[in-house]
Design a protein around this nucleic acid. Sequence first.
DNA 1: GCTTGTGAAATCTTTCACAGCA
DNA 2: TGCTGTGAAAGATTTCACAAGC
Lengths: 215, 215
Amino acid sequence: MIGHRIPEATVNRLPVYLRALAEASSSSPTISSELLAEKAGVNAAQVRKDLSHLGSYGTRGVGYEVGYLMHQISRRLGVDNELRVAIVGAGNLGQALATYGGFASRGFQVVATFDSDPGKVGHRVGTTSVRPASTMPDVLLELKVDIGVVTTPASAAQSTADVLVAGGVSCILNFAPTTVVVPEYVALRQVDLGVELQILSFYRQSEVAPVAAGE
Amino acid sequence: MIGHRIPEATVNRLPVYLRALAEASSSSPTISSELLAEKAGVNAAQVRKDLSHLGSYGTRGVGYEVGYLMHQISRRLGVDNELRVAIVGAGNLGQALATYGGFASRGFQVVATFDSDPGKVGHRVGTTSVRPASTMPDVLLELKVDIGVVTTPASAAQSTADVLVAGGVSCILNFAPTTVVVPEYVALRQVDLGVELQILSFYRQSEVAPVAAGE
DNA sequence: GCTTGTGAAATCTTTCACAGCA
DNA sequence: TGCTGTGAAAGATTTCACAAGC
């Protein structure tokens, strides 16, 4: 079981395993599928099946070596080299993301922030100062940005995505509450915080336990 | 096809349809499954199958009446009555969520914010002022909070969730980068922004189009 | 003629259960 | 003995294709 395409459902869980392994790394140098499953909130057979797609990195009778497994998952996810992130839209959410520790600790570096509001330009956000949105075409190329994060209003999301694509980014994470369209060679993910609450509302009334998002 | 359990995959798409319908409502009073599918980024057969779980609300040869369909989806999701939200953790992300327009416009009302840092208490965030975390047990009950949003550090997430549960919330949306455990009668959803970027990274290198999150 | 609603087929995902190995 | 790795079974989801109805 190796060298083949990894199922999408598995890809969505790999970062969760990575997070659970980071937590577990201080306790023991090895971990069983059962313990990892518990920490990640899934079934042990699922963990073994998922990990088998990466290769045979466990030891029967013992478990998985935590550090080595983290390395293998990171490598497969492509997060073992530092990726460069630009955030477009320096409103509350954009500022929150720019200063969010969870990015830096996982190998993502916020190298630029943009806003079209002249009142926000020049303002310091995290380790960057906000640049005018009009400079995106040049700056994206110059700073070799890999990932664009869209936190603009819905009305500006599609045009922002277009500029990001023209600027050579290979991934877009869209927080604007609208569907954007990009060429198929660009990886796109949409996160709508309102949608998340609406899904919760459904499970609230049906009194049934759900479900993890983006996992 | 009615009166039965709605598949989880369908529930996750209903809010996206709702968003697409809101956008489309100004153009035409009716919409075909094909157009709705395009706006939501899915297949037309999927739209018809999903909507058939709610009942027979379309007209053959014509399509779906936009306003009526929105009403039916909202009703089924349980977002047709105003739900009350409390945000725990008034850091950048907590503040961003408290002032996020996408909640209010979808029938969610942020009625309280909490933080354990005395330096943040009393500070105005959105329409609320930050309360001490120690007052949560009383305030949650008093304000009849339905949904708790956790934006604390990972280390405080589980204890925060416990207090929210004791305070009678029926849903928890967890942004802390750790798995939390709640009784099964509480609906839980985890959103980890770092995880979202890691999933994107995978599709970046595999040069294949993904996938929408929480959708 | 155009579009819905839905069985049936195809595909994907999860879970089981156990052989295989340290 | 204990735990991984994996076929096979079970279950869920998506897509097809077309009858039914406006």
